[in-house]
């Protein structure tokens, strides 16, 4: 299995109407400053050799203005050397929300499986996830969310539930109609009327 390039993954998501945070590869700190404009950004070092970017110190969050960005950029580039080859990705900071994981895996018996659960740092500690075989229907998506113990955290309200059901169905469509074997969208930042995929990891 090979990892799909981040920006190619983002493009694929766009095609299915799946929203992800504004991102760009940067090759110098000036380029990062230009991308940020007045906003806060995150910079991540992307390497096929590091699954846990944050654990490996390959993520800098919430930097703003030329000075801050320059310091962060240099620090990250230094740390990333031992994971070479790597690329540096600048992303607009996402507003606060609940971190959700949506992922896919290919089971050798049952084929493509879709997963949703409380994401971010809680994925491994709480392991509160729901799984279904693809293709899923609307009912399955609703049941997956209802099944979560953290359902009330993940979905906030009825509108967020509908939004996530729609998102799961779009991701399901993308998954079944592609050669993707495995993927993690973690975190997906979910707010009351809005969501944004912040990290994309796709294996083909």
């Amino acid at each position: 299995m090979d990892m799909l390039d981040y920006m190619q993954g983002k493009k694929l998501l766009d095609k299915y109407g799946i929203k992800s945070v504004e991102s760009k590869y940067v090759h110098s700190y000036q380029e990062a400053v230009g991308f940020a404009g007045r906003d806060s950004i995150a910079i991540k070092a992307i390497s096929g050799r590091a699954i846990h970017k944050s654990k490996a110190g390959l993520v800098v969050l919430d930097v703003k203005g030329a000075d801050e960005i320059q310091v962060a950029y240099r620090k990250l580039a230094e740390r990333a050397v031992k994971f070479a080859p790597y690329k540096l990705l600048a992303q607009k900071m996402s507003k606060n929300g609940v971190e959700v994981i949506i992922g896919g895996n290919t089971d050798k018996q049952f084929g493509k499986m879709l997963l949703v659960g409380l994401g971010g740092i809680y994925v491994e500690t709480l392991k509160d996830t729901a799984l279904r075989m693809c293709p899923i229907e609307k009912y399955d998506a609703q049941e997956m969310l209802a099944q979560l113990k953290t359902n009330s955290i993940v979905t906030h309200n009825g509108a967020a539930t509908d939004m996530l059901v729609d998102l799961l169905l779009r991701i399901n469509k993308m998954f079944v109609s592609s050669s993707i074997q495995e993927f993690d969208f973690n975190p997906v930042i979910v707010r009351e009327n809005d969501y944004e995929i912040v990290d994309i990891r796709i294996l083909k």
Binding site: I51, I101, N105, L115, V123, T129, E182, F183, D184
Partner: peptide
């Protein structure tokens, strides 16, 4: 991936 780790045999 996280997903592969969470989607074990029993879970599937």
């Amino acid at each position: 991936s996280h997903t592969a780790a969470l989607a074990g045999n029993y879970e599937v």
